[in-house]
Amino acid sequence: MKTESMSNARPRSFQEIILRLQSYWAARGCAILQPYDMEVGAGTFHPATTLRALGSRPWAAAYVQPSRRPTDGRYGENPNRLQHYYQYQVLIKPSPPDLQELYLGSLDAIGIDTALHDIRFVEDDWESPTLGAWGLGWEVWCDGMEVSQFTYFQQVGGHDCHPVSGELTYGLERLAMYVLGVDHVMEMPFNDPGAPIPLTYGDVFRQTEQEYSRWNFDVADTAMLLGHFEDAERECRRILDAPRADRAGREIVMAHPAYDQCIKASHLFNLLDARGVISVTERQAYIGRVRALAKACADAFVTTEAGGSTGAA
């Protein structure tokens, strides 16, 4: 019989799972980045994924990204639905030939014994209409539960990806609940249960879930949000329309500041959607407006050095 090494012992808390993923991917050569400091709907929106998937320069990054989906708020009462949650995101370009094996290694690292569980790669084509992006891959099942998304990016912001990035997204709460054997997210140990001050997920987030659910659904000022949406859209355009050279004659394309406005517009749209003020037909139009911004930002990024541009435009 094989004895389990200490590192493969079952983790005891939410944060231990995050820490193990961090050290696992750090050991595989990824730059461990910090979360992006803006409100986003998913880890994919982080410029370290969206923009860095573009162009020819190699890239390898992993990070936690707090994500917000206002419509999923349930006042902290639903066992696994939250308006604010964490995703763990890995992006490697070009996708290495053993990415599946690397991924399975990460499951092992967080205590999922693949000799006892049934891991499956089930077709799931990923598409983000707001980012003008799509890819092919799978949702990864562990005993019938989706624990990750695994995608080979084919297009982002309307640009073909060359080379192709491999993207892994772990829904951290759901994955951790499974590994820790917890039925309600709020009961999940956040730090070690043996710590002097043990904290559950609920201790950290129950109240914020209530507060944001109320604000998202009932209180947010829709007229103001709509104004902000239009401001963000306008500013994004204005940034991209600025001349390539600054007043000192230095060529500086402002792809990232413009993309920040695109992220803002996307989140404001999500808030408006949660307030129920966007009709079915309007929805498509808003998504189209955000996508147009994402495409414009991608167009700008690929003309920059980080975007793989080698010469002057």
Binding site: P94, S95, P96, P97, D125, G135, L136, G137, Y152, Q154, C161, H162, P163, V164, G166
Partner: peptide, 18 residues
């Protein structure tokens, strides 16, 4: 019905051909 590229190559297959 749908195919893809992977890594730095240009070959298309349904998922990476190993």
């Amino acid at each position: 019905p749908k195919s893809m590229r992977w890594g730095a190559g240009s070959l298309r297959w349904v998922r990476p051909l190993r």
